[in-house]
Design a protein around this nucleic acid. Sequence first.
DNA 1: TTGGTTGCAAACAATTTGCATCTAA
DNA 2: TTAGATGCAAATTGTTTGCAACCAA
Lengths: 156, 156
Amino acid sequence: MAGDTSKIIPNIEEHESWKTFREYLTAQGLRVTQQRLAIFQAAYFSSDHYTAEDLLDEARKLDESVSRATVYRTLPILTESGLVKEVDIGKDYKFYMSNQGATTFKAQVINVDTDKIIEIDAPFMEWYGKAVAEKLNMEVVSQRLQIEAREVPSSQ
Amino acid sequence: MAGDTSKIIPNIEEHESWKTFREYLTAQGLRVTQQRLAIFQAAYFSSDHYTAEDLLDEARKLDESVSRATVYRTLPILTESGLVKEVDIGKDYKFYMSNQGATTFKAQVINVDTDKIIEIDAPFMEWYGKAVAEKLNMEVVSQRLQIEAREVPSSQ
DNA sequence: TTGGTTGCAAACAATTTGCATCTAA
DNA sequence: TTAGATGCAAATTGTTTGCAACCAA
C-alpha cells in the first residue's frame, strides 16, 4: 500500500466517513482505489477551503502517485456523495471544503483583500429561497449567499 | 439575446445614458471611440443577461470592426461605471446585464434546466449583509444571493 | 503630433479528455 | 480475466496580452 493514511488523525480508517465513502463508491459501481482514498482523506479531513491544486498537493503527501487528472475526476464523486462541498466565489477556479457536520445553511463572507472565506450560519436564508422559488412555482436545488467585504481600518 | 437595439429605442443617442458614458470616459482620461460606443449601446440597451460572446455579436451589428479583445477590454469600463452589472453564477464564463434603473438589491433565480436567470428584488438582503459584515468588523463591498431551482412539473 | 486604442494571434490558466497502461474485483 | 481507473500530455475554453498599425484629441 502506498502511503500510510493514519498519520494525521488517530485511527482515521475507523472514522465512519471512510465507510460512507467506500459504500458510496461500491453503490455507484465504482472501484475503491488507493488514489481515490488518498484524495478523499485529504479532502474530508481538512478544516479549510482549498482549491483542486491544494488538494493535489495534500493527496500526494498520502499517495505520491496521485495525478492532477485523478483529482479532477474524483472531485465530482466527492461532491455528489455529499462528503465535500463546492464553493464558487466567482474566481476562475473553484474552492472546495469538507462537508463534515454540515446542517444549517451557510453564507460565505469573502475578504476581498485576502481572499479568505468565512462561513457563517444563515438559517433563515433557506426559508427565503424556498419562499421565492415557490412563488415562481419552482423548487430549490441549491442556494448561496456571498458577501464580499473588507476589514474596516479599525478606528479608535 | 436582445435584437438590434437601435430599432427599439427612438433617438437612442439622445438618451441620457450616452452622456453619462461619454462623461465617464472623459473623466477617466479614456478616449471616446466608435468601438466603445457600439459596445456600450449593445450592452446597455439590452433587456436580458448576456455573455461576452453575445455582446460581441450585438456590438458587431452596430460596428462590424469591433473585436473580441475590445469587448473584453471594455467590459471592466462598463461595470466600473455602474452602467452594466456582472453576474457570476458559477459557470466557467460570466454573464452581464444592463444596470438601467437598478436601485434595490436583486437576487438571481437560476433555472437549472434552461439556464435562464430571473432577477428578483430582495431589498432586505442589503441590510442582512451589512449586519453580518458589521459583526465581523468589515464593510460590504458587494453581495449576491443566488437560488438554483427547477420548475415544478405543475400537477393538476 | 502622439499616446491611448485597436485587431490579430499567440499566450494563459483551470479544467477536461484521448489513449496506452495498469489494477481492482 | 477484464472493464474500469490511472498518469501523461495534448486539447479545450473563456479570457488576457504583446505588438504593430491606427486614430482621437
